[in-house]
């Protein structure tokens, strides 16, 4: 509680896609160990917001900070490239479509970054990979190739890959949206486990129930702006904004 510096801080984030303003000045912060779920209709800008945290999207205005370091600071091209590569090593990202490397085995998917970027010896990286795979319940798949895995397994390997860099935060971009319904739970379970370990997480999701269960705070976005945010029990039960009520109603009825 004394550690007041937020792990992630976004100030006045603005982003345009052509003439369309997809982020209209967003402010939010995530404390160390906090889990924030971002919900909202498609096109609300929630994925763009998440992707701008690790600079996969470049903001047109505003600042992003990670643990006291500005992510999108102004540097010349080369210096920024070095800077951003360093910063990204501290942020794990999990994508909707997994984006595992199909030409590499599960082991190599997980170890390539620690080996190449941190200079970790191969034997040590293998031990680490086993530990991470154990965590996601897939230690027996270490030598498999991604093509042989189910969607749920792929996503769990993708989580293990991100965790192997021992990041300070984990960013989830609709991690279960591309999965068959019966495979969603196994991925959610892994995320809950991470939550129990006090990993700082930002979770962009369509799953209201999961958001309510796992998040400390929920942010509802629409049209590139934060409409409402609060504890899940407040936001889901007593939304103060008409827009939030409308969105949630659609979900409850659907």
């Amino acid at each position: 509680m004394n550690d007041v510096r937020p792990m992630i801080e976004v100030r006045g984030a603005r982003k345009f896609f052509g003439p369309l303003e997809v982020l209209k000045g967003i402010d939010f912060s995530v404390a160390r160990g906090q889990i924030v779920a971002v919900i909202g209709p498609s096109g609300s800008g929630k994925s763009t917001l998440l992707r701008s945290i690790n600079h996969l999207e470049t903001l047109d205005g505003g600042e992003v900070w990670l643990d006291g370091v500005q992510v999108n600071q102004k540097l010349d091209r080369r210096a920024f490239e070095r800077h951003i590569n360093r910063v990204r090593q501290q942020m794990g990202m999990v994508f909707q479509h997994f984006n595992l490397f199909p030409h590499l085995s599960v082991l190599e998917n997980i170890t390539i970054a620690p080996i190449k970027l941190k200079g970790m010896p191969k034997a040590e990286a293998r031990t680490l990979a086993l530990k991470m795979l154990d965590k996601v319940g897939l230690a027996d798949k270490i030598d498999a190739f991604p093509a042989r895995l189910s969607g749920g397994q792929k996503q769990r390997v993708a989580i293990a890959r991100a965790l192997a860099m021992q990041p300070k935060v984990m960013l989830f971009d609709e991690a279960t949206s591309a999965l068959d319904p019966e495979l969603v739970d196994e991925v959610n379970l892994v995320m809950k486990q991470l939550a129990a370990e006090h990993m700082t997480m930002v979770i962009v999701t369509h799953e209201m129930r999961f958001a309510a269960e796992v998040a400390d705070r929920v942010i509802f976005m629409a049209d590139g702006a934060v409409v409402e945010e609060g504890k899940p029990e407040d936001l889901f039960r007593n939304p103060t904004q008409e827009r939030t009520r409308g969105f949630l109603k659609k979900f409850l009825n659907g």
Binding site: N54, L56, N85, R88, F95, F101, A113, L117
Partner: peptide, 17 residues
Amino acid sequence: DRGQMEAARSLGFAEGQ
């Protein structure tokens, strides 16, 4: 797939890497 480059970059690999 573009996601391959994004996944690599998000791990901290430089563009050339």
